[in-house]
Amino acid sequence: MKRWIPLLVFAVLVAFFAKGLFLNPREVPSPFIGKPAPAFTLPVVGEAERTFSPADMKGKVWVMNVWAPWCVSCRQEHPVLMALAQSQPVPIVGLNWKDKDREAAALLERHGSPYVAVPDDLDGKVGIDYGVTGTPETYIIDQAGIVRLKHVGPIDPDTWKSKFEPKLKELGA
């Protein structure tokens, strides 16, 4: 019986490896799910007097999309967000992350803005508070200001359907 132990150990390893092939070791889960979204107050791009704070959205389910003008996959995602802004009621806030070259306003002017507000996180501190590792990242935040979902990478219609829509429905938005 003892002689079969190596084979047994190996079989267990293979099972894990097979599972591992379908996992992404780089996708870092957010520790914020189920916790209150960190508070901040930031000026809004393109509107000199206005500031934005998550508290403004209390009572609503909303989506926060972290993006940047210098980010290539955000441009790819932009038309999808434009379509979503028109086709469904959940407001999208676009946190403008580390826009050192101050291009966001011009860019949104040119291509249109899917966002209800674009808070300007110039030094990236709010991003760090949310545990952002790279743009784009998207969060769903509920009526009580609790983070319900985090998605890393650009949104395409399929991920919206499979990941965001069920969550939004569950939250009654």
């Binding site: 002689r3 079969w4 190596p6 084979l7 190996f10 079989a11 293979v14």
Partner: peptide, 9 residues
């Protein structure tokens, strides 16, 4: 590896 370990056992 599996084959060789079977042979071993």
């Amino acid at each position: 590896i599996g084959g060789s370990l079977v042979l071993f056992a």
